[in-house]
Amino acid sequence: MSDKSASAYWAANIRIITICMVIWALVSFGFGIIFRPLLAGIPIGGTDLGFWFAQQGSILTFIVLIFYYTWYMNRLDKEFGVDEQ
């Protein structure tokens, strides 16, 4: 692999990691804790959306994030020809 495509591959990886980490922080620290008062108006199961994110929603989002990243990277690996044969 040329140096140029190596750095492009790494840049693409960093970009998707950054996007995933922003969502990771947003659902847990954001919706689950800091912004909970802002979500207080959205009722769910006898409480509010922030409580749901803190006790269930963030965990479900984490699972989706990991599988999305895995799927995305498998595609990226093939595109740059760095996948395992």
Binding site: C20, M21, W24, S28, A54, S58, I59, F62, L65, I66
Partner: peptide
């Protein structure tokens, strides 16, 4: 505990 012990896997 719920968020912390699962978020680490991400």
């Amino acid at each position: 505990f719920l968020m912390g012990w699962t978020g680490g896997y991400v």
